[in-house]
Design a protein around this nucleic acid. Structure first.
Length: 329
DNA sequence: ACCATTTGACCCCG
DNA sequence: CGGGGTCAAATGGT
């Protein structure tokens, strides 16, 4: 990606232009003869997201916060996540814990497709716990990378179904994969990512519609990268440095469909689910903020929805440390 | 036998 | 003190 010095402004413009395009598309769709409710819904949502994204970006800029910051750098393998506090290496240093970046993604699982099976993003996860969360009807499941012991991969994720809509699954990721598997993916990503350029520009809506016929999506879960994914599928970056590239966060975009389909098959097929529901969202935060809020987006969250994915960056609770760390780079 | 999931206990933190 | 996150023994699957 490019490294623009000031991606923010550009980002806002891009987002707004995207919204404009979408609005025009919607206008077209409104023609009675060709009206498509679904298409309109998708467009509408996309438009609204564009506005939200733009506003969120503006808010960030106003605060003097560079959006890219939203992410953290966790590269340091030494940083142990919150791994195991007590027993074993009880070397838990709360500091590190706080700096752990985390991002989340909302995924809508297509009920038809078999729901649960969909939580497979290509990484190997091992469930290590489940908890009933206060106020939530569904329990939260905790997963860690299978290679944690063998390769020291600290990636973890939490999966929880939305209270009201069980088809929506929220996935919170922490730490990037440092395992071999993660790296491989990441490399792939970078290829892909480099192709895709910044911001969300895609005209997803159309795409979405097309995909609708397919059904099985498997999506779900995880991606962990900060870098975002370009595609959930292939791009996961796991790496040491989160943002080596400046505009990554904004980069996001793209709809899987645009990417090479081949890959998409594996997980996340761009498909239907995403499309229809358009319910996928990503957001990341640096360490601890709560993500409960993210979901509802009360705050300044940027949501890029590209059609298929919504990425949101939550900048609200940055940890000052976190910011410091970023400045470092 | 190995590996993943389940599940109650335990720990940290607000 | 209680919620959230993790551990680890028990259990199940291949």
């Amino acid at each position: 990606m490019e490294k623009a010095g000031v991606p923010e402004k550009k980002s806002v413009i891009t987002v707004l232009n995207e919204g404009k395009k979408l609005a025009n598309e919607l206008k077209r769709q409104l023609d009675p003869s060709t009206a498509s409710t679904e298409a309109c819904d998708v467009l509408l949502e996309s438009i609204l997201s564009s506005y939200e994204n733009a506003m969120a970006l503006l808010a960030l800029i106003g605060n003097g916060v560079s959006p890219k910051i939203a992410v953290g750098k966790l590269s340091d393998p030494s940083i142990s996540i919150e791994g195991s506090p007590r027993s074993e290496g009880s070397d838990h240093s709360s500091k590190k814990r706080k700096t752990m970046p985390r991002w989340n993604k909302h995924v809508r699982v297509c009920s038809g497709a078999g729901g649960e099976a969909q939580l497979d993003d290509g990484y190997n996860w091992r469930k290590y716990g489940q908890k009933d969360i206060l106020g939530a009807t569904h329990p939260r499941a905790y997963y860690r990378c299978t290679h944690r012991n063998t390769q020291g991969c600290l990636a973890t994720k939490q999966v929880q179904r939305a209270d009201e809509d069980p088809t929506v699954v929220e996935v919170i990721y922490r730490a990037n994969h440092s395992c071999r598997q993660g790296k491989e993916r990441k490399e792939q990503d970078s290829l892909t990512c480099s192709k895709q350029v910044m911001l969300v520009s895609n005209g997803p809506s159309l795409v979405k519609t097309e995909n609708r016929d397919l059904i099985d999506s498997k999506e779900e879960e995880d991606l962990q990268s900060f870098s975002f994914p370009s595609t959930p599928i292939e791009c996961e970056n796991v790496e040491p440095q989160f943002f080596s590239e400046p505009n990554r966060f904004i980069t996001t975009s793209y709809s899987p469909s645009f990417l090479s389909p081949a890959t998409s098959e594996s997980y996340f097929s761009p498909s239907p689910c995403l499309v229809d529901d358009f319910g996928i969202g990503h957001s990341f935060q640096s360490s601890e903020s709560d993500f409960g809020e993210i979901i509802s987006n009360p705050t300044p969250v940027t949501d890029f929805s590209l059609g298929d994915f919504d990425i949101s960056i939550d900048v609200v609770d940055f940890d000052s440390h976190f910011l410091d760390a970023l400045e470092f780079f």
